[in-house]
Write a protein that binds this DNA or RNA. Structure first.
Length: 263
DNA sequence: ATGGTCGTCTCACGA
């Protein structure tokens, strides 16, 4: 079973790239973030033609999340139930697997803009609510995977130039603590289960030839509950879509779960 | 050197 996440920065602009990527990289579920389109503009038909069902939470201009899946997602939950918020940042669905139902969540965590700003305070409050909700969600769904754009680089190894970024939004200590609190619920960063190339990133700023210089951050993550970790056979960042013309500033992260042999 | 580039009902703002 393959689970992937991709912040597409406008599904309207990126739909042809999403279709091309899915053609080349069939997955069981693809979590999308930053759809930037209203609920009624979601391209469900084009994705259905590819064989993907979809659950989505749209919002005009900003945010918006979806889960595309081979099997229909059930028990769809939109947004954090414990956090009143007009911004569409979370969608959770239940998918069948060889070992039983898996809860798959697509999350677009707030960016935070700048340390000390109102948006930064909102980010930390949002993470606290995510934490509290996940604790309950993991009790209900012991097999849980939450994928998305966390807008947090968990460690200096996830930052191209830690000295330059020190203390800034996306790497500041309170944000990293908020991320670690999610892990303390019993979630594991799938990417770090495996040996990885140094300077592996999932996002590069559009400016200053950042991708060409590999001046990026690893802020897109796949977190797995403990019962899924033994099944995780691989987790990779696919840099290829970042080389496309008119790319998203993020590139997909893909986790492979193997249910053969291990129960 | 506080710049730069995207996407959005663009001449501003969020990322």
């Amino acid at each position: 079973m393959k689970l992937a996440t991709w912040n597409v920065n406008s599904l309207k602009v990126r739909l042809p790239q999403v279709i091309a990527w899915l053609d080349a990289n069939p997955v069981d579920a693809l979590c999308l973030q930053e759809l930037k389109l209203p609920q009624e503009k979601f391209p469900a038909e084009a994705l259905a033609e590819l064989g993907y069902k979809a659950s989505w939470a749209g919002q005009k201009t900003y945010n918006g999340v979806a889960v595309l899946s081979r099997e229909v997602g059930t028990d769809v939950q939109v947004n954090l139930p414990n956090f009143e918020d007009p911004q569409q940042r979370v969608i959770a669905v239940t998918l069948p697997s060889a070992v039983g139902d898996i809860r798959v969540i697509s999350a677009y965590c707030p960016n935070g803009q700048a340390v000390g700003s109102d948006k930064y305070a909102y980010k930390l409050a949002w993470f606290a609510a995510l934490h509290d909700w996940l604790r309950e969600e993991m009790q209900r769904y012991p097999r849980l995977a939450i994928l998305g754009d966390y807008n947090v680089a968990p460690a200096d190894a996830d930052v191209h130039d830690p000295a330059k970024w020190a203390g800034d939004v996306l790497v500041s200590e309170p944000e990293r603590e908020a991320f670690q609190r999610l892990l303390s619920l019993g979630l594991t960063d799938a990417f770090r289960l495996f040996e990885q190339e140094e300077k592996s990133f999932s996002w590069w700023d559009y400016r200053q030839f950042a991708f060409r210089r590999n001046a990026g951050l690893r802020i897109d993550h796949v977190l797995l509950s403990a019962s899924l970790v033994p099944h995780c056979a691989a987790c990779i960042i696919d840099k290829a879509p970042r080389r496309n013309e008119q790319p998203s500033d993020h590139t997909p992260v893909v986790a492979t779960l193997d249910f053969k042999g291990v129960s």
